[in-house]
Amino acid sequence: MHAIALWRRLLAEFAGTALLVTAVVGSGIMAATLSPDDVGLQLLENSVATAFALGALILTFGPVSGAHFNPVVSAADWFLGRRARTGLTATDLAGYTVAQVAGAIGGSILANLMFDLDAVTFSHKDRSAGHLWLGEVVATTGLLLLIFALARSGRSAVAPAGVGAYIGAAYWFTSSTSFANPAVTIGRAFTDTFAGIAPASVPGFVVAQLVGLLAGVGLLLALYPRPRGNPDRQEEPKKAVEIR
């Protein structure tokens, strides 16, 4: 049973996800403004800002909610902890997911308003292609494996740096630029800017992320079948985690 009230954890997930998407979208807008003729430089500026913001947000909200900011992370936490009842409950999972999606949409709207754009400008950037979906499977699988490998091996303290570094790198080594997060994917449909994704492209990305969830949990259980410290107790160490 969690010592922190559910409403506090939901508020942390809402605010953390909102600020994460604000960082992703806002840095994308700024990058396009500062480097209008260099897409590579725009991606560099966007990825660096996102990686640093993510690490800072995990440090800020991790002690309250675990700093998931991502429905697939929350789903994995529920699945891996259900036997020993150490992870999220089904009610927690539903609440986290709603808070994360709402926060992501709010974060996109906030970024639009900060840069004097309409509050909602649905993206026209088509991202529907098999190679992009494969990139999302890879990005999500790697993210989950990293997060829960750190938790199960007693290294959660380095999660802010590790997760931020992974997302920053995955911008570059995945074809999709590593959304790896259904809530953030939905939120980014609400901005027609550098970081946007067309609403029609969202379902394909979310399905790919769910495939990554299954692959990531499967690999984790093969490589780290039990948390360190007690081989007979399936318990996840307290973690501070997310994603983009």
Rank of each mutant, 00 (worst) to 15 (best):
I197Q: 00
A149K: 00
A159H: 10
T141Q: 04
L20S: 02
F190P: 10
F148W: 06
L213V: 07
Y224G: 01
T140L: 02
A53L: 05
V217P: 10
V72L: 12
I197W: 00
L132Q: 03
A75I: 10
N46I: 00
A240D: 09
I105N: 01
D116M: 07
G103D: 04
D92S: 14
A149R: 04
F173A: 13
G212L: 05
S176Y: 07
P36S: 12
P160W: 13
G81D: 14
A161W: 13
G154C: 03
P71I: 11
A15G: 10
F194D: 01
A161P: 08
Q100C: 08
L44D: 10
G55N: 09
V137R: 00
G196Y: 08
P231H: 06
L110Y: 10
V206Y: 08
V48H: 10
L19E: 05
A94E: 07
R155D: 00
L41H: 14
R83A: 15
L19P: 10
A208G: 12
A56Y: 05
A104Y: 06
G204K: 03
V138K: 00
F14G: 12
R83P: 11
S153D: 06
G130P: 10
S65W: 06
G106Q: 00
A3T: 15
F79S: 14
A102L: 11
G55F: 05
F179K: 04
L213M: 09
A32W: 09
D192R: 12
A51Q: 05
L213D: 06
A165L: 15
S27P: 07
P199E: 02
I4T: 15
I105K: 05
A157W: 15
R155Q: 09
A198T: 01
V207G: 09
G106Y: 01
I29E: 05
D77M: 11
D92K: 13
D232L: 11
S201F: 00
G135W: 01
T191L: 11
N46D: 15
G187K: 04
N230Q: 02
A94F: 15
G229T: 07
L41T: 15
R127M: 04
L146S: 01
D192W: 10
L132K: 01
